[in-house]
Every structure is written in structure tokens, then in C-alpha cells.
Write a protein that binds this DNA or RNA. Structure first.
Lengths: 350, 350
DNA sequence: TACGCTCGTGAAAGCGGTTTCTCGCGCTGT
DNA sequence: ACAGCGCGAGAAACCGCTTTCACGAGCGTA
């Protein structure tokens, strides 16, 4: 904030133009209906004094801030950054700004963080994968306009936008199965994460459906480092294919395996999840499920914008990942053909 | 904002506790000096009514918002996301939030955007690589607390944090030279970008210093797609080493070259710049100059925080990139040895 | 000519806090 | 016993803008 008395206020303009603050306000907001000459005079005074209304004061008076909050567990996660990108761009088109906050992977802080953010903003995009359901229900009720990312729930009043992780992971497993794999290992994400739960359920079902499939499970994490850490465990598991919680884990795993002399996909196939921008450029390019996170961010804004104008926000949406077959998967025990480079890619729909 | 009359205000608490709003305010801000029993009563009323002060009203009254703005040309750029990450985390530690905005690569919009943001925030981190110097000087003067990213300038009153792009690119060139390359091609970034200018100057000087070096220049861009687009030009240039404006361009280039059957580094060496998190996982792992963007974000906050308390913000800083030698560079015309995997890496300092 | 309308504008009451200023009270000093 | 002092807490002004309400002027009509 500028030093007190430095900024020109609406009163200054009013005085300069010889009118009342009310009139200045009306002119600035195109709500003025009187003599055009008066409006002109006000406008001239405004530009002459370099006046622009204080957004803060307007927010207080109007009860709206033209700001939307985004709360995520870790802002450095590329998936959240993609959401942020989509949200920022979409909101900007309607003259809204985005306030970001990061709970530093501490679900306990999220309710108070969210409420605090909410008071600065008109609405909030909440991404709280590890928040307990009951806390979420309570929070969503008090929060007002909010959209939930990846937390579809009939008991919550807010619209939610989610990724069909189950469908994506099933399709990945099926792809591996079709290539001849029978022994899998799943590298689980954060323990209490909803999206991890979705993936696990889908894999449980896959295992139950396919009698000849063996599925090992390793509790891992969501970061590159987590993937690297479990490389040895994966190697020793006897699996021919590893299904990683996400791309970061997969990338870390591939790297960790390389350090142990295990080649991907020659010795072991690996799949990721998310299709972060660089998944296609990794070594080898990563077979993964492509998730439209930027789209998610844009749709989130669309819902909130509707909600803010008391329109119907639209139904909950379950966005379908698209599996992208790249170089990190191959038939077990078979060497990958020479020339299977970054350019080759198949995209399947689900 | 909650529906009018829904939120409990300071007046409600005052009434409930049988005191004046002034007293409530003092209690809430630990400025209360009277009878402890009164303070207790107020605190009880506050929690009972679920009261929390409106940040908006406080901001208006206090003249500070506890918010800092970040303005960048494109929020989707990983470098900016890293800065955002560092800034967000550092600011959060002091109870500040970050408001993000993206000028959509439109330098003309930046001055008005920045001023608008500034009115909502206590300070702003400005990253405007393509803004004309004179505009910047003017803007920085009116903006108040601001730190400039990558725009060191004696004529601007604001502190600046920059990357020594010249040193980084020179070191990369030198590395290539040491490996035996003599014909280079530089893939230039955005035409009017300051950081591109810095790289170009350094390469001009490098060319002048090394008599046997031939340096071609291609105007390219800053994105993966730009790199892919110029792959053919690069191949036809006759250069044995390509120095890309940044990692994204390098990655795109490598991909584009692969599509034309040109192998990296066997046929052509490629360097990037930035060392985005995935540079080490590309295929092949990218030789690049590692730039501490997250650190940049944190330092930016540190300066602004100091500035906000009328402390000396500290001197301008020129952060040194560290060149990371990876798999995308090799001696010209020599095949890379088998087994040069992602794990192998040398880090040099500058 | 008087009455009632509409139209253009200003006065003032919010929005929800903070802070200065003031005032009443009880305590001390002589 | 009374002036003076310090302390605890409230009244009111203020931050900068919006908006309702009121008011006076000008007009048309009876």
C-alpha cells in the first residue's frame, strides 16, 4: 500500500471536478445518467489526477473481491501447476485473479487455510486429497462457492471435477496384460489420498477379474524421490511391470532402476499417470494416462463463475484420462526393437 | 463473500461480550492492556460466535494486505512455476499470500496489469523480460515495493534478482568447445527478451574470442514447439552443436531431430538452459545450465519483506547458473559409449 | 397558479475494521 | 479532604468506495 495520503481518492476527484463523491462513483462505474458534461468533467479530473479506484475499498463495499483462491497440497507438483495455469487463464478472461496457497502436504491445516482464503476471495478451488470426508463435508458447507478437485461425493454440496483414475489405471493394467505381463507391482501414492484409493480399488478389481494376474503392492509416495527409493524393492518383487502412482514416481523409479542396471522396458515395463508435459520426453518416453489438468482448471473456473452469478454450476464431471502408449512398456522379457524413439506414440481413448 | 448479514462482525462480538468494538479489536490484536477478565470475556464471545476478523476490512484500515503479487509473461512456463513455488513457500512463512497474474506474453499489458495488482497487494514481483527499459523505469518508480526478476538496471530504483545468463551460456559453449565442437548454432529466444539478449552478447563475445569458432544464429522462441519447428534448419546448418535458448526449446529440438533421424548426441550435441526438474530425465538427459529459480523466488520474498519493513533490501544479486553435463553433449562425430545412462552426471560450477 | 412528476445530484449511512482522543474513575501525595 | 495523576474502556473519526434516500429544480398538467 502506498504511503498514507499519497494516493488520490475519490474525494480528491470529486473536489477537483466540483461534484460529490457519489457522482464520481457513478461515472466510474458507468451508472451515471445525468448531464454528459458533468460526466466529462469527472472523467477529465480522474485522468488528470491519475485516479483509479481502490480495489480494496470496492471489495469491502461491494462484498466481492474478483479473486478466486486455489488451495493445493503442494504447489510444486506439476499437476497442480497445470490446474493453476488453466484456472488463471480462464479467470483472467472474466477479470478475476487467482490467489494461491499450499498446505505443504499438511491436511490438518487445510480447513483453517481454506476459510482464511475464502474471506479474501469470492470462491475457492479446493484440492484436498487427504482431507477426511467428514471434515470436507463440514468445510464445504461453510465455505460458500467452492469446487472440489478429485473429491466427488454425494454428501458434499459443492460441485466436483474429478479424474476417473480407476478407468485410467485399469486401462493401463489391461495394456500391460495384453502385452503379456502377469505379475504386476503397484507403487501406491500417499496413504490417505482419495485418488490413490481410487487407483487401488480399480486394481483390486482388475486382479479379481483376471485369475492369472499377480499384483504386488508397495506403499510409495507421490514424488520422484519416492520412486527412486523403492527401485530395489520393485526389482526384487519379481514383477515384470510396475504401475506407478504418477509420472513423478515412475520417472524416479526408472532412474533408480537404471542405477541398479535394470533397463526399462527391456527388463521391466513401467507406467506413470498424469502425462505431465515432460512424460513424452523422458528416457524412455513414458507410457502413462493423460490427464487434462489444464482443462480441469478451466472448468473449475467456469463452475465458480456460474455459481457466483447464481446460475446452475452444471453437473459433476468425471474427466476420462487417455492412455498414451510410449516407450516405457513392452512385452516382458523381450528386448525393445531398435528405433523405438520418442516420436512413436499411440494414443488410446477410454 | 458470504451473503450479507451472514457473517458475524466485530460489532456482534462487542454486543455479545458487553464491550465496545474498540475493545474487541484490541483483544484480537493483542493490544489489550486492561482487566484480564474483560479480555477473557471477549475471547469467549469470539469463539462462541465463531468470529474471525474480515481481512478485507483490516486491509483497508491498516493499509496492508499481506499479499504479494507475481506477474509473469506465462504462468505455464516451468521456470516461472519454480519461482512461484519458492515465493509462495517463503511468503507463507511470514503469513503472506501470493496473487498470480499472467500477461499472456503481451508486454503492452504489463504496466496496467502491474499497477492494478499493486493496489491489491503490498508489493509485487515483476518478471517482464520484454518490457522496454523506459517503461520499466517509469513503472518501477510508481509501483512502490517491487523486485525485478532478470532485469538488473542502474536506472531502476528497485532491487533486482537476476541470473547470470552470460556466464552460463559461455560455460556451455566452452564445454562444447572443449569437446571439440567448432561450428555452433544458437537457437535464440524471444526477440526482445532481455535474457535472450544477455545470452546473445555472451555468445558474440565467445565467437570473437575464439577465432576458429563459427556461430550460426536462428531466431526460434521459448517453447517446446519452437524447438521442434527449427529442427530441420538446425540439421541443415552444418553445426555439430546446438545451444538452445532454454530446456523447453532443447527438448523440442531433440524431439524434432529424432523425427528426422538425427541422433543426439551422436550426430549433434544439444544444450539447454534452466535445468527444469525434468531436464535430467529427458532422452538423452540434457546438458544444461542449472538455474536456482526456486531460490530466486525465495530471495525475492526476502527482499520484499525487508522493503516492507523499511529495511535495506540488500544488494542486487546475480545468481550463477551451474552447468550440468549430461548425456546430450558429446564429442562431434563420435558415437556415445554404451551405458551412458541417466545416472551419470557431472556438475561444474561457474 | 398550484400540484405532482421526473430528473439530476448530493448527503449520509453503510461495508468491517483500527486508532486517536477523551472521559470517568480510583488512587496517591500533602 | 482535595488536586493531580494514571489507567481502563468507550465514542467517534477514519480507511475509500457504493448506494439508498432525500431534496430541489424544472416541467407538464389541471
Amino acid at each position: 500500500m502506498a504511503r498514507r495520503g499519497t494516493t488520490t481518492t475519490i474525494a480528491d476527484v470529486a473536489r477537483h471536478a466540483g461534484v460529490s463523491p457519489a457522482t464520481v462513483s457513478r461515472v466510474m462505474n458507468d451508472r451515471f445518467v445525468g448531464e454528459p458534461s458533468v460526466a466529462d468533467r469527472v472523467r477529465r479530473s480522474a485522468t488528470e489526477l491519475g485516479y483509479s479506484p481502490s480495489p480494496l475499498a470496492r471489495s469491502l463495499a461491494l462484498g466481492e473481491t474478483h479473486t478466486v483462491a486455489l488451495l493445493v497440497p503442494d504447489i510444486r507438483n506439476p499437476a497442480f501447476q497445470a490446474i493453476l495455469g488453466g484456472l488463471t487463464r480462464a479467470a483472467a478472461r472474466d477479470g478475476y485473479r487467482v490467489l494461491v496457497a499450499d498446505s505443504a502436504e499438511t491436511p490438518d491445516d487445510e480447513p483453517v487455510l481454506a476459510t482464511e482464503l475464502r474471506r479474501r476471495c469470492d470462491s475457492v478451488v479446493l484440492c484436498a486429497p487427504r482431507m477426511p470426508e467428514e471434515t470436507l463435508v463440514e468445510l464445504a458447507a461453510t465455505l460458500g462457492p467452492v469446487v472440489l478437485i478429485n473429491r466427488p461425493s454425494p454428501s458434499v454440496s459443492a460441485p466436483s471435477l474429478s479424474i476417473d483414475y480407476g478407468a485410467g489405471i485399469t486401462e493401463l493394467a489391461q495394456h500391460l496384460y495384453d502385452q503379456g505381463h502377469r505379475t504386476f507391482v503397484y507403487l501406491g501414492g500417499p496413504e490417505r489420498s482419495v485418488s490413490n484409493e481410487r487407483r487401488r480399488r480399480a486394481l483390486d478389481e482388475f486382479e479379481a477379474t483376471m485369475p492369472d494376474v499377480i499384483l504386488h503392492r508397495i506403499s510409495c509416495g507421490a514424488d520422484t524421490e519416492d520412486g527412486r527409493r523403492v527401485a530395489t524393492l520393485v526389482r526384487e518383487s519379481g514383477a515384470t511391470a510396475a504401475i506407478a502412482f504418477n509420472d513423478l514416481v515412475a520417472i524416479g523409479l526408472v532412474d533408480g532402476l537404471a542405477a541398479e542396471g535394470v533397463r526399462v522396458p527391456e527388463h521391466l515395463s513401467v507406467t506413470g499417470f498424469d502425462d505431465i508435459p515432460f512424460a513424452r520426453y523422458t528416457s524412455p518416453p513414458l507410457t502413462t494416462a493423460s490427464v487434462p489438468y489444464e482443462e480441469l482448471g478451466m472448468q473449475a473456473w467456469q463452475r465458480l463463475h456460474a455459481l457466483g452469478r447464481d446460475e446452475a454450476p452444471g453437473d459433476d464431471v468425471l474427466l476420462q484420462p487417455r492412455v498414451a502408449i510410449r516407450g516405457s512398456t513392452a512385452a516382458p522379457g523381450r528386448r525393445a526393437g531398435i528405433g523405438s524413439g520418442a516420436a512413436a506414440e499411440t494414443v488410446g481413448s477410454s
